[in-house]
Amino acid sequence: MGRIGDRFESLRGRKEKALIVYLTAGDPSLSVTKKLIFGMEKAGVDILEIGVPFSDPTADGPVIQAASQRALKAGTTLQGVLDLVAEARKVSEIPIVLFGYFNPIFAYGVKKFAHAAHSAGVDGVLVVDLPYEEAKELRNYTDVIGIDFISLIAPTTGKERLTKIAAEAMGFLYYISITGITGTAAPKINNIKIEVGKIRKTTNLPIAVGFGISKPQQARDIACFADGVVIGSAVVRLIDENKNNRDLIKIVSDYASVIKKELR
C-alpha cells in the first residue's frame, strides 16, 4: 500500500477522519506553496491535493479559476510542480495527490509524466477531465508504477456507472457533493449521506467528500459518515486574501487545524 492507503488505515485505527486540503500550486508562488505544504502538515492535514494550474479549468468556480490564472501568470508549469513535490518529499511524508486537467499532462507526455511523478514522490493523480472511459490513456502508465488514480463520483453518476468506476478505483473515492463546479454552493448533508451510503455498498476504499465545504460544522457533519473531507476553494480564498500578510502560513494553518479538530 502507498502513503494514501497507509494514512487512511492509521486514521481508522485512531478513529479519526481525513482532512484533505487543496492548494493551487504557484499561487501566489511555488515557494509559498512549499511553505504552505509544510504548514498544512504541521496543522494536521492528512492528504494534500496539489492543483496543477490550467488555462481552461472548466470544472472550477471563480475562486480556483482566478488562482489558476495567478499561478500561470507567475510562470507555474507542470515541471515546476513536480520539482516542488520532490523538494517537499525530502522532508515530508504527507500523501500528495496531483489535481488538474489532462492537457498539461498530455503535453508533458503521459509516460514521462508517470515516471517523473513517481520519482518526485507523488502518490495519486486526480484528472478532472479524464473520466472512466478515457482513463486508460493515463492509467496504463500510472497504475503499474504505483500511483493511485483517484476517481470522482458525482451526484449524477448512476448505479451502474458507480459500480464500474468503483471496481477499478484506487486510493479513495472522491464524492462531489454538489451538482456544480468547485466552491459554488453549500452541500446538502442529508443527500450526501444517502449517496455516500450507496457508494459504500460498492467499495471497501475510503470515501472522501468535497466541493463546497468550508465550515467546521459541515466538516463535522460529513465526517459522521464519510472517511474524509476535502477543503478547496475556502483555503484558496484565504490564501489570496492574505497573500501579503506576514502571517499567511499561520492564518491558513490555524484554519486547517480548526477543521481538523472536528474530524478527531
Binding site: T58, D129, T157, G158
Partner: peptide
C-alpha cells in the same frame, strides 16, 4: 474528456 458530473 469531460467532468464526471456531465458524463451521464
Amino acid at each position: 474528456y469531460a467532468a464526471e458530473t456531465l458524463m451521464p
